[in-house]
Design a binder for these strands. Structure first.
Length: 820
RNA sequence: GCGAGGAUGGCGGAACUGGCAGACGCGCCAGACUUAGGAUCUGGUCCCGAAAAGGGAUGGGGGUUCAACUCCCCCUCCUCGCACCA
């Protein structure tokens, strides 16, 4: 008998699936199932870390097909963005050449793995057929007031020469692992999506996402970061009101200074006309020039400077100095904090350093605090003191009472503050979606009319290298245009969109990928949404996975889709590492799909990544991992070759089976049940181990001509199919050469009448220790089992001469005899 | 600092609702078949006992319970996320 001809067979069935259109989507699904893996940034070769993601998704998709669902399982390319452009600059070729080469390579790899995508629905974000709808959606968002332009200090990556969203700054550095340059602050005029308008909706929506990992839900909650507080008006000497937001109004009488962020707008003007003016300007410059990571590192010694100005506390009437302090964030609250050194650790440190008085206004119940003796702020709840009419109030109540007083006097307002900031989407780079806006000297900013979309990315660019401003600004044929309003000469916006815009709605485009009238038709989106199973990396928890929820919610509110949440179930898969380091295309570190499949086969790769560990766990790849599944495949092949593909009977008469045969039949049903329920619960490793166990039993079964044996073999093939599709398809066709694909055949249900043996072995414990076993009928009554246990000779020595206090029976599980 | 998750053989990992800890696989040991084996098959493989009988074992310590990997309290360590958010 020959070895399993892996590659020959895999190629055969991949061709067959293609030709028969096995994975084509039913456009009119009756029972839909949308399984989606996060699409791919095509950046060179594909390693087993990528493959893990797609093998998981494909296993789910094929299983659902066999269970009778109409499955949507599409794929596409997240093809715009910096890596492509940087690589293009490095290799001195246009970005699209590099990108499409990468796509070809990756697609070949996916086909080598035999992943069952409906390639008719392929989406490529750098094609005008796709990105025109980015522009269209941008304009819709603009009309709805969800797009705006403002000058602000933004994250600037000096190496990529572009701004970054907050979600793209990781530990103060550029999020791209091959860059990781410290991010700077730069004042620029940029386009933003007003995601903060959806902060509460995004937060509320998390409650519904019960099919998401708890960790992701918590991360999103923290990222959105809701706090309740109050905005209090302090007053400058000239009467100007300056609002300060706080969550601790109960400490308002303890304010001894105000601190302003160096990049807050007020910081520029506050010191005007004071002797401090020069020093303040120098301080702000010095602070802002530092990379944010250094400036805002926790635990760092705080820096500040007095502005020469004072403000009046609206409750106590006290006059306090205004400082500029580097620990205050411009983008949170009002960009200014009230300094309460007695009750906030940061304020405490700052006050000690600059000899600002410390005032105690909260004390622990029944105790006193002496400012001079304090070594840290007292930030716990307590009782209010030195707080005028509020003295004696417990601080938690005090928060409410102070707010009420402020509101009554019209000098404060309750306000919820979110940590989430608006999404900065403009990029000063070439390889992205042009922003469909026109700047006219007379009419100001004018949107490009819908009928003029797409605004095409010009191909005739000589130099893609960024120079601190947009590449497109230097492309005259692109930048010069006419104003749609007045017809006069005008200029296009030179920036391109963040690629996270592309990935925020691709899940909807898959439902209607060729629509040239709309991004997608509502009816089609509603047929498939929400996504039933979404699989991707956890690194997207606070980026893409928030953005695509945001888009879906806006599109819902625009009446374009019925669902508010895009995705019912999310699974995050663990990274795959090699020699302790995460596999990475850009660092050329990994096991590559192409050579691996050529050597071991696609089924081996699939079984390998699925069997090695539960999907969410990180996985250290090793050759030993392959050995087991490769042996498994070889053993399956050998057993079936030996058995000779004899057709089983259509119906199995269970009554006529002898004991041995019936046992096999029961084991088959147990295996069937476990494989399906485990796979449905995303436990592919134990599903595969159940198949391995059953294979071992098939080998030991004495009569290979028994109908039940033949029956079991064919069922085994069907159960194996989602995990090792090529091998299974081959075996299936050896039985049924005239039938279609195993994946379009409805998988039978297991026989629930035969998932238990007639007799069971029950462990007997004495005082909790295992002392023996007893075999009883599954239907025997409680007394009968207890009697058998007490009479068992295994336990006799342990109960002899002792008083049996109690006999605990857990039916079908255990008997515990308690003696004294 | 705050938050989340985790710790089980030499390794990856199993264990339903609290009910036989270590399924399955790798590795290792022994044997069989072989000219040969890095192929295949069979058996063994948590630790202490020569062995049986017994004990002891799920990061450490306590508790609840007839019974604890599982529940409760304390501690240690690891991973991840956020991190001066007022």
């Amino acid at each position: 008998m020959s070895d399993y001809p892996i590659r020959e067979i895999e190629r055969k069935w991949q061709r067959f699936w293609d030709e028969k259109g096995v994975f084509k989507t039913n456009p009119n699904p009756k029972k839909k199932y949308y399984v989606l893996e996060m699409f791919l940034y095509p950046s060179g070769d594909m390693h087993l870390g990528h493959a893990r993601n797609y093998c998981i998704g494909d296993c789910v998709a094929r299983l659902k097909m066999m269970q009778g669902y109409d499955v949507l399982h599409p794929f596409g390319w997240d093809a715009f963005g910096l890596p492509a452009e940087n690589a293009a600059i490095e290799h001195n070729i246009p970005p699209w050449v590099w990108t499409f080469d990468s796509i070809d390579l990756c697609k070949r790899n996916l086909k080598l793995l035999g992943i069952g995508y409906d390639w008719d629905r392929e989406v490529t974000t750098c094609r005008p057929e796709y990105y025109r709808w980015n522009q269209w959606l941008f304009l819709k968002f603009y009309e709805r007031g969800l797009v705006y332009r403002k000058e602000a200090y933004v994250n600037w990556c000096p190496r990529c020469q572009t701004v970054l969203a907050n979600e793209q700054v990781v530990e103060g550095r550029c999020y791209r692992s091959s860059c990781a340059a410290p991010v700077e602050k730069k004042k620029l005029t940029q386009w933003f999506f007003k995601i903060t308008e959806y902060a509460q909706d995004l937060l509320d929506g998390i409650e519904e996402l019960t099919g998401w990992p708890e960790s992701v839900r918590v991360m999103q909650r923290n990222w959105i970061g809701r706090s309740e507080g109050v905005e209090v008006d302090f007053q400058l000497d000239d009467g100007t009101k300056i609002p300060v937001w706080t969550t601790r109004p109960d400490t308002l009488y303890g304010v001894t200074f105000l601190a302003l962020a160096p990049d807050a707008p007020l910081a520029e003007t506050i010191a005007r006309g004071t002797a401090q003016k020069q020093a303040v300007a120098e301080f702000c410059n010095r602070v802002l020039i530092q990379p944010e990571i250094e400036r805002t590192a926790a635990g760092r010694e705080k820096q500040g400077i007095f502005t020469g100005r004072f403000a009046q506390n609206p409750l106590s009437g006290e006059r306090v100095p205004i400082y500029i302090a580097d620990f205050v964030l411009a983008g949170y609250g009002t960009g200014m904090v009230m300094g309460v050194p007695g009750h906030d650790q940061r304020d405490f440190e700052f006050a000690r350093k600059y000899q600002i008085p410390i005032k105690v206004v909260i004390v622990p119940e029944g105790k006193t605090l002496v400012p001079e003796a304090m070594t840290a702020a007292y930030s716990e709840p307590g009782v209010m003191v030195n707080s005028g009419p509020f003295d004696g109030t417990p601080s938690e109540q005090g928060i409410q009472r102070v707010i009420e007083e402020l509101e009554r006097r019209g000098i404060g307002r309750r306000r919820v503050q979110y940590r989430l900031k608006d999404w900065l989407i403009s990029r000063q780079r070439y390889w992205g979606t042009p922003i469909p806006m026109i700047h006219c000297r007379h009419c100001g900013i004018v949107p490009v009319p819908y009928e003029q979309l797409p605004v095409l990315l010009p191909p005739d660019v000589k130099d893609y290298k960024p120079k601190g401003k947009s590449v497109l600004a230097g492309v005259e044929s692109f930048i010069n245009t006419t104003c749609p309003k007045c017809g006069g000469p005008a200029q296009r916006d030179p920036d391109t969109m963040d690629t996270f815009v592309d990935s925020s709605w691709y899940h909807l485009r898959y439902t209607d990928p060729h629509n040239d009238q709309l991004p997608f038709e509502r009816g089609k989106a509603d047929q498939w949404l929400p996504i039933d199973e979404y699989i991707g990396g956890i690194e997207h928890a606070c980026g893409h996975l928030i953005f695509f929820r945001f888009f879906t919610q806006v599109l819902h509110d625009l009446g374009m889709v019925s669902v508010k949440e895009p995705c019912r179930v999310l699974h995050t898969q663990g990274m795959v590492s090699l020699e302790g380091k995460t596999m990475s295309s850009s660092r050329r570190h990994g096991v590559w799909v192409g050579p691996f499949v050529e050597e071991h086969g696609a089924d081996c790769a699939r079984l390998g990544v699925l069997f090695a560990a539960p999907p969410e766990k990180p996985l250290e790849w090793s050759n030993e991992l392959v050995t087991g599944v490769k042996r498994f495949i070889a053993r399956i092949w050998r057993l079936f070759e030996e058995a000779g593909y004899q057709l089983p009977p259509d119906e199995l008469t269970v009554d006529k089976l002898n004991a041995e045969e019936k046992k096999l039949y029961i084991r088959l049903n147990q295996t069937h049940k476990k494989v399906i329920t485990d796979a449905d619960n995303f436990q592919f490793n134990t599903a595969i181990s159940a198949l391995m166990e059953f294979l071992n039993e098939l080998y030991l079964f004495p009569d290979r001509n028994a109908p039940v044996f033949k029956f079991a073999l064919v069922r085994f093939v069907r159960l194996l199919a989602p995990f090792a599709p090529h091998l299974s398809e081959e075996l299936w066709h050896r039985y049924y050469p005239e039938k279609g694909s195993i994946f379009t055949e409805r998988m039978p249900e297991w026989d629930e009448r035969f998932v238990h043996f007639d007799t069971i072995e029950i462990p007997i414990q004495v005082n909790g220790k295992l002392r023996g076993k007893v075999v009883v009928s599954r239907t025997s009554g409680e007394e009968e089992v207890k009697k058998a246990a007490l009479e068992s000779k295994d336990v006799a020595p342990h109960i002899e001469g002792k008083e049996v206090v109690r006999v605990v029976l857990i039916p079908g599980r255990v008997v515990n005899i308690v003696v004294r």
